[in-house]
């Protein structure tokens, strides 16, 4: 595990990165959430293909897609593109 720099002394000579952005939980941006109806889903993976946020996950061919709500920004492309209308966008619960 790489440690994040704590002071200027820890900085490398060249400004390089240390981590990926996966800890950045962009799911907090969302106001509407996609919900997949597996009854209607034909596993065409169009939602997976068009998800800009890599938040539609399919483990392997044949599996149903799942939504990663930690990162899904709720753009709604998946619901708009789904040819079977298997995805609906639902309002996030008010806090």
């Amino acid at each position: 595990m790489v440690e994040a720099p704590k002071t200027y002394k820890d900085l490398p000579s060249t400004p390089i990165t240390f981590f990926t952005t996966e800890d950045n939980k962009t799911g907090t941006w969302r106001t509407i959430r996609p919900v997949i109806d597996k009854e209607k889903c034909t596993r065409c993976y169009i939602c997976w293909k068009f998800c800009p946020d890599l938040s539609i996950e399919v483990e392997k061919e044949g599996d149903y897609p799942n939504v990663d709500y930690d990162h899904c920004k709720g753009c709604g492309i998946c619901a708009n593109e789904c040819p079977s209308n298997a995805i609906t966008m639902e309002k996030e619960m008010e806090k």
Binding site: T26, T42, D53
Partner: peptide
């Protein structure tokens, strides 16, 4: 058996800063 029509491998990470619906990450 349902198939992927594009390669499975991903080289883009989650948590990027694109606006919702942005075409660039795609």
């Amino acid at each position: 058996i349902p198939k992927f029509t594009i390669p499975k491998e991903e080289y883009v990470c989650k948590g990027h800063s694109a606006c919702p619906g942005c075409g660039t990450p795609l």
